[in-house]
Design a binder for these strands. Structure first.
Length: 426
RNA sequence: GUGGGCGUAGCUCAGCUGGUAGAGCACCCGGUUGUGGUCCGGGAUGUCGCGGGUUCGAGCCCCGUCGCUCACCCCA
């Protein structure tokens, strides 16, 4: 480590060549979303604090202890967004996006913030890609949302993951279950900390990683068994649609979601190659959120995918070339690299380069005062497909030789028609 | 907030039971006049995280501190 400064604790940074993977992941996810008619919504990274306390739920860990909250100069309490859905819903309400055709289909991506203790795959600033379909309560829309995430993962080449789904039911389903569940828990001998958690959200106990706790709740009543017929039918419809789409899934009746607004369908994509933070994406339906935030009483469904974790997953599956730091071997390349000899050559080179770039080629040139050999080496490292050496002879004659790096062949070209020659060569 | 591991060149790391630092990769130059990938030769690079202590002497021991990392909690 060197220099006087270090990045703040727990943030991830992406620089070349790894940043290329980041771009690729985002592009693929955008592609599958656009293909399903979801469009970009770009939102602020900070919002009124109350948007999250009210929307996400004060009892959640996210809100109660993981928010980056600060006061602006006007004394307003603002918070760096810890998740994406609340902001999307806020914007929909604020701008009346829900007054036209429903559902409103949107996707977003960008940084999110949670003040947690960092860990493998868990960062204080992390990146998410998410979509929301708002305004209709249709189980087939649930299936569509899930399928988009699934297609996204598949198109990236991921294999070692599992889709888990469940239904959290409606208020009535949950009320009935809660009574039985609390009755069951009251017969258990639990420590204080665990009791606290149970008080906030009884279901959370399913997520406890301690074996002795898991043993105690082995026979606990499960929410799925308490679904009302309406909730149950919707859940069956979602499963049926997933089967129709040939998307494999497992029902996990003990799945727990960290945000309070979820109702009905809930799902999570779990990768098997990651550490303790195995979830690469998750989401679900939220019935009451929009109304809670002051909008119409409309239901919505969406997901959030962790880009950082997807990248980790890709790497553990060997889908990313991390063999060395230089850019050779990855799909980055230059169409042309010009090696100028002397300042007058540089002057000509810089305009030639620009001309070539305008026609859509990727081009670079040797800067500084490197030896010819050094510049050629640089061209090779940068994975240049063609190289043009530009010296006094070329400047005077207006002719040059375009070298194809793959086999060393050279063709004569005139400098003025460099772009055209390159087009022929490629 | 709690616990474990680790902090040595840009990167990955070595450094034996304490004697004032090394390797590989990367980087730069060169191997006869203007042409890369292999090979060969040469070169630069570190307040050994920071502060204190023990010692004739510490990268190696002790204390503190900061940071990183993994795990718990929780989540993407």
């Amino acid at each position: 480590m060197s220099g006087d400064f270090q990045a703040p604790k727990g943030v991830s940074e992406y620089f070349p060549p790894r940043s290329g993977i980041f771009e690729k992941v985002v592009r693929k996810l955008e592609h599958v979303s656009l293909a399903a008619n979801y469009h970009l919504i770009e939102l602020p990274v900070f919002e009124d604090t109350e948007l999250f306390t009210r929307g996400v739920g004060e009892s959640t860990d996210v809100v109660s202890k993981e928010m980056y909250t600060f006061e602006d100069r006007g004394g307003r309490s603002l918070t760096l967004r810890p998740e994406g859905t609340a902001g999307v819903i806020r914007s929909i309400i604020e701008h009346g996006l829900d007054r036209g055709q429903l559902p409103v289909k949107l996707y977003y991506r960008g940084p999110f913030f949670r003040a947690e203790r960092p860990q493998a795959g868990r960062y204080r600033q992390f990146y998410q890609f998410g979509i929301e379909a708002v305004g209709l309560d249709d189980p087939f829309l649930d299936a569509e949302v899930i399928s988009i995430a699934y297609r996204g993962f598949s198109s990236l080449g991921l294999k070692n993951f599992e889709l888990q789904i469940t239904s959290l039911g409606d208020d009535e389903s949950r009320g009935k279950h809660r009574v039985e569940f609390l009755k069951f828990l009251s017969n258990l001998d639990l420590d204080g900390e665990t009791l606290d958690r149970v008080k906030k959200n009884p279901l959370r106990i399913f997520d406890d990683k301690r074996a002795e706790i898991q043993a105690k709740i082995k026979d606990a009543p499960v929410l799925l068994d308490f679904l009302t017929s309406d909730s149950s039918m919707k859940f069956e419809a979602v499963k049926g649609a997933l089967e129709e789409l040939e998307i494999p899934f497992v029902v996990n009746s003990r799945m727990v979601r960290g945000l309070d607004y979820y109702t009905g369908t809930a799902f999570e994509f779990v990768h098997k190659g990651l550490g303790a933070q195995a979830s690469i994406g998750g989401g679900g339906r939220y019935d009451g959120l929009m109304k809670t935030l002051g909008g119409q009483d409309l239901s919505g469904i969406g997901f959030g995918l962790g880009i950082d974790r997807i990248i980790l997953a890709l790497e553990t599956e060997g889908l990313v070339d991390t063999s060395n730091e230089n850019s050779k071997g990855v799909d980055e390349y230059l169409d042309l690299f010009i090696v100028p000899i002397g300042d007058s050559a540089k002057l000509r080179a810089i305009s030639l380069i620009e001309m070539v770039r305008k026609t859509g080629f990727v081009a670079d040139m040797g800067f500084g005062d490197r030896s010819l050999k050094g510049a050629m080496k640089a061209a090779d490292k940068l994975n240049a497909r063609h190289v043009l050496v530009l010296g006094d002879a070329e400047l005077q004659s207006g002719q040059g030789r375009l070298k194809r790096m793959a086999d060393g062949n050279e063709v004569s070209i005139t400098l003025d028609s460099l772009a055209a020659s390159l087009k022929n060569a490629v």
